[in-house]
Structures are given as structure tokens and as C-alpha cells.
Design a protein around this nucleic acid. Structure first.
Lengths: 148, 148
DNA sequence: CGATAATATTTGCGTCCTCAACTATTTCTT
DNA sequence: AAGAAATAGTTGAGGACGCAAATATTATCG
């Protein structure tokens, strides 16, 4: 079976994506430092803030953060110690624990979110044309549904 | 200063990008497992294979792999042990060491590359229209030059 | 020329994460 | 209802990487 190589535009897409996506995420993460958050913490808080009662089961939260359960257990240690999130044991099911955003966590998130959005704009959105923005949205959505 | 929120298409672009890019990279990395390589190793070998004499100074290699020098030192331990890469001390400058692809490393890379490209096609390229591919290339190129 | 600064690399230490194994609880199966 | 299987979460071990400090070598400046 002959290997089908990538055409120049295909290669350009792939290369620019791998070369740049890490840099982009690192740049955005750096802007979260003043708040004492890294990207993982921010995403965790953001996820909880969008959930009913600001709480999610550990395993659902792990899935949405693309962490293993054990990875989430470890990350929780940090935000628990900072009192940004609290643990709530479920009454109905003795196995499940909820992670719940505390008022302090919500407050910090509300402080950090505008900065964070500003970073997303600065490093990504504002650099792109509306057409490119739409293309990225549809492209990654297609990739995701092809993966899942 | 009022926060400028993201419009729905902007939010869709950002969300789909962060939600998906990690999954995409993980899927591609998984296909490298049969070769005993992870993505870091593959990139390292690929970089060397494109360099003159199949060798690069450690610090240049670190930069192109987006690793710190110390990170590269550690990653080198793995590929050195597997004899995929060898260390060459510079004659002109006593400080610098070169990482050089071994024949064995080159051979493995040539085995793995078609598989790898096939993964890139399968998970990314073949899912997208030519327009989307071009848009991704120009978009990430713009983002990169804005970052740098 | 000699002191200082710059450059290249490694090492110690800490963090984050995964995998595999373990515990605890609930849900099937028959 | 009893035993097996599934589900939720934690823990121990280990890997990969960053930061800061240490080391070695070369370049620069007075």
C-alpha cells in the first residue's frame, strides 16, 4: 500500500497546528498566573460554574476535563486546599462525591474570567478573520465528532 | 473597562479548539504505540531527520521541540537508551553537544512515518474540506507570528 | 591579559498526570 | 436474596517536564 503523503496545504495545516497550539495554550495560561490559577484549575472552576448548583460528580467532571479519575483526584487536592471548591458526599449513592464551587471559587473565577477572555482574544480571536474563526469552529467540531 | 465577550462564533472556535486539540493529539499518539514511540520521541526523530547530517545542537533541538533544555536532556535519555539517537560532542565548542539520528533511529522513523501520516489524515485532514485546511494553515500561522 | 558575562548542558527538586491495583458501594443475574 | 459484575473514587509507583541552581566552556570588555 503506497503511502499517501500530505499535500503542501495539508502539511501546512498540520505543521502550523502542532507547532502553534502548545504555544498558544502556554501564552494564555501565563496570563492566569496573577490569579494563582493554571489552565487546569481555571477549566475546573469554569466547568463547575456552568453546572446546576455549581456542582458536578467527580467522574463527570473528570470526563469533561479530559482527565482520568485519578488525575482529577490529584487536581482537586489543589483547589480544595485553596478553598475554591468543596467536596460533597452524595446522599443517594454512597459511591459518588460532588465537587462544588465555593463562593470564594466563584468570586475568583469572576475576577479571572475577563482577563482570560481577553487573552483568548489577544492571542487567537483578534488575529483571525471571521471566515477563519468560522472555519476553525467547524473544522474542530468535525474532528471531534469523527474522533468520538 | 467593560469586558468584551466572545460572540457565539468566536466562542465556538475557542471551545472546539480546546476541547478537541488534546483529543486529536492523543489519538494520533496512540497510533505510534506499536512502534514504541510517543509523540515527543517521534517529533525528536523527525526533527533530526530533516537536519543536515541528521544532527542538531541540543539547544536548537530543544527550541524546535518546545522543550526546555532540561526537558530535552531527560527525553534524550530515552532515545539514547533505545539507540535511536547518539550524542556527539562538538570539537569546536566544548559546551555544545549534538544529537544525531542513528541508522536504527532513521529506520524506525521510516517505518513509523507512513503510519503516522495516515493517522494525521484519518483524524484530521480527511475530515476537512480544502477550504478548512487552508483556513487552519493561515489561522495558526497568523497566531504563531502574533505570539512570536 | 584577566575578570566578567554569556552560552550550553545537566542535576535536584517539585508538580501534574497516568496506569494498575485497591476499597467501597450499587446493580445486575438468576 | 446471594454472588458476580459494574461503577465511583483513592492510592502507590513512575514518567515527563519545568524551574532554579550548579558546572563547564567560550566570548567580551576594560
Amino acid at each position: 500500500m503506497a503511502t499517501k503523503w500530505l499535500t503542501p496545504p495539508e502539511m501546512a495545516a498540520w505543521r502550523s497546528f502542532i507547532d502553534t497550539s502548545g504555544d498558544l495554550l502556554r501564552a494564555i495560561e501565563k496570563d492566569l498566573e496573577p490569579f494563582g490559577l493554571d489552565r487546569g484549575d481555571y477549566q475546573l472552576l469554569a466547568m463547575l460554574s456552568e453546572a446546576p448548583d455549581n456542582e458536578l460528580r467527580m467522574c463527570d467532571l473528570a470526563d469533561s476535563l479530559r482527565l482520568t479519575r485519578s488525575g482529577l483526584t490529584r487536581r482537586m487536592e489543589g483547589v480544595l486546599k485553596k478553598k475554591l471548591v468543596s467536596r460533597v458526599q452524595s446522599k443517594e449513592d454512597g459511591r459518588v462525591a460532588y465537587a462544588q464551587l465555593t463562593p470564594k471559587g466563584m468570586e475568583l473565577l469572576k475576577e479571572a474570567a475577563p482577563e482570560h477572555l481577553e487573552s483568548v482574544r489577544k492571542y487567537m480571536i483578534d488575529v483571525l478573520s471571521p471566515t477563519e474563526i468560522k472555519a476553525i469552529a467547524t473544522a474542530f467540531t468535525k474532528i471531534a465528532s469523527n474522533l468520538g
